[in-house]
Amino acid sequence: MTSHRHNTESEPGPRDGYLDAARECILDVGWRRTTLTEVARRAGVSRMTIYRAWSDMPALLGDLMTREWGTLVASGVEVATTTPTPDAIADAVVATVGALRDNELFTRIVELDPELILPYLLSRRGRSQELILEVLAAAIAAGQEAGLITDGGPQALARGLVLAAHGFVLSAHTMVDDDVDQSALDAELHALVSRRLAR
């Protein structure tokens, strides 16, 4: 799912290099052992340079996760400029869920520091979730205008689908075994989305 509003052509700035260094740290040693000092060392800059950009690690992590997940959403299947049918939107949702589930940074955080994800499931929406909701609601609204998607508030429909997708991102591995493989679960997610949006 692509949002051109969030897809710029500008060259990466210095902060992207610092975020790259933070990403490497988290992949290597996990969140708990990553410090702003270590990020500065890996980025080849002074500690004060990093401290001027972020006051603490949670602030840096928020920007890193927004960049990481936002990039996945922006590089997913385009639905805003194609015919927004229930099946096309379902394709985009399944592709985005799969990309998130397979992302190495996401996997590392879930494996080593799952508590970092909990606030976004239990307390508040993050910037990446807002981006996903924005793109999905816009696609649903476009499909409704074209008479292809069921009636209902686009925001409510989008939020319901994102809530359902959470389980397919975070818990799908608990449902995979000799009887049901990942492709079967992805097919169930596709059916869930397309049937909910069908007229």
Rank of each mutant, 00 (worst) to 15 (best):
T2L: 13
S3H: 06
R5I: 06
H6P: 00
H6K: 07
N7Y: 12
E9S: 12
A22E: 03
I26Q: 10
G30W: 09
R32P: 01
L36M: 06
R41H: 10
V45H: 03
R47P: 02
M48I: 06
T49E: 03
M65I: 15
R67W: 00
V73G: 03
V73Q: 08
A74I: 02
S75R: 15
G76Q: 10
T81P: 01
P86V: 08
P86T: 10
D87M: 05
A88I: 05
A90T: 10
D91F: 01
V94G: 10
T96Y: 04
D102G: 09
I109T: 02
I109C: 03
V110P: 00
D113I: 02
I117F: 12
P119F: 11
Y120N: 01
L122M: 14
G126T: 04
R127E: 15
Q129F: 00
L133S: 13
V135Y: 07
V135K: 08
A138M: 08
A139R: 09
A139I: 11
A141C: 06
A141I: 05
L148N: 11
T150D: 05
G152I: 02
Q155S: 13
R159I: 03
H166C: 09
L170A: 12
S171P: 00
T174L: 15
D179G: 14
S183F: 09
E188S: 14
L192D: 05
V193F: 09
S194P: 10
A198R: 14
R199A: 14
